[in-house]
Design a protein around this nucleic acid. Sequence first.
RNA 1: GGCGCUUUCGUCUAGCGGCUAGGACACAUGCCUCUCACGCAUGGAACACGGGUUCGAUUCCCGUAGGCGCUACCA
Length: 526
Amino acid sequence: MRERKVRVRFAPSPTGPLHIGGVRTALYNYLFARQHGGDLIFRIEDTDSTRFVPGAEEYIIESFQWLGIQFDEGVGFGGNYGPYRQSERKEIYKKYVAQLLDAGKAYYAFDTPEELEAKRREIENFQYDATTRHLMRNSLTLPPDEVQRLIAQGAQYVVRFLVEPGHEVLVDDLIRGEVRINSSILDDKVLYKSADQLPTYHLANIVDDHLMEVTHVIRGEEWLPSSPLHVLLYEAFGWQDTMPRFAHLPLLLKPVGNGKLSKRDGDRLGFPVFPLEWHDPKSGETSSGYREKGYLPQAVVNFLALLGWNPGNDQSELLSMDEMVQLFSLEKCSRNGARFDYVKAAWFNHQYLLRQPDEAWVPEFDKLLRQNGIESTPEREAEVVRMMKLKVIEYTDNEGNRKKRNVSFISDLWPLTRFFFVAPDSFDRDDKFVRKNWKDDTAAEMQKLAALLATQDDFTADGLRALVDPWAEANGLRPWNAWRICLVGAGQGPDMYELAAFLGKEETLARMQYAVETLGQVDSNN
RNA sequence: GGCGCUUUCGUCUAGCGGCUAGGACACAUGCCUCUCACGCAUGGAACACGGGUUCGAUUCCCGUAGGCGCUACCA
């Protein structure tokens, strides 16, 4: 067998939004293709005309654009092996169906859905195979002229694959090793339906992969049980020499409970299972997406890549796409299903967010403020971002790395930054921080501090520091926490001098005045 | 039910006959500190069970149990 250029494909059905598990499958195909200098093909498997959902195809393409997963050819990308939409390949499939029919490796079956249903009721565990096909209405049991007559009359039929029983079928899987099954347990799968003149997945898949010169089929584990059928199909066509290698990926499981990850889990636990927000054209319902939730695409990709694959060392799990392309290997993929850990997904987002420059935060932050009814300027917003990041950016750890705070999404910033724009209007006397830092004489202390600040013209952080630090030292005071209560209303926020400078003299004094009046002296009658 | 895949800390995983069973998320404690964080340090936490094979099994084989998938004129 000659060396062939690596060619892989991702081939979704346009039946709705792209599931996050599908994204991972596509990602692995992408990593594999890049690593081997091969091609990644985008094929649309729309052989079930009844399940087509408008907009799904566009949604899938947009998802991959956002995620940074690029295709080399396929629907919307061009290429020399088209068309890449299976519904546009009807004539091609017909030719190959005829080939199997002529070779006696497939046959016509005229059983109606009702007849099949009746058989299923009649025979327990009915399966259309070598043990039952002689009981059915097909070209194996009907006289040839009757078959011709039925077809000429326009009777509905399907073409079924004739599976020879008693053979051992070997599927050589790159992840699972050699999987052997006996052909006797396989059924005579429907390959083609006359009703819509389209093949089923199995036939279309094999024909397309062959014609498109696909070398590796990397897909979900749900396909493992039907892969012996696919092997048999390659053999029936005489294509075993160029049959692709298979790799069946483990499935993504629910974060809690039993079963595979589903849309409902996302709704229930509050995390998206789709890359982009999706508006269902039929039900009108909206499903949340990673993009709209504030995830960075790199974070989603990094997180997903590690769900079922691991480079096998103790190095950082933060990997760029390029690094993953370098490190990826199918042999390192795990074989058991992976629970979907959305807490860790948030951690990845946190990490990627911290690595972004300040400017990148501002547009999203601005959006967040507007949603909360705050009008501000980009300058003021950048100032807040700078302050909220400043504290952590200033920090350098033992290894010389700069670290930042635990904000996983820009939207996390609202409760942390509200006080920059809205003065506290009430104080919680039962709050631990307030109880600890607002004593009997605190109001008087704050009044003194306010008086001091009133004299200050240079209301910058540095100017305030130069004024207040010596004053506090000289009077043996530690006014910062109480001052924080005045300006923030709680035990959070940036450096007090930074904050006061941001608010300005007037606002700072007003907030102090209000806090002194409201909180006043703590009732000490106890 | 049948067939197949699978089984290491709560979760994702490293391990490919001999290790104090390693890392990450999460959790706990401490340090740092004008608050919240970040950061740093420390800690608790796993080889499903039963048989073999072997001088020696987390690792190889066979069962059992659990998990997952498939079992359509859907993909």
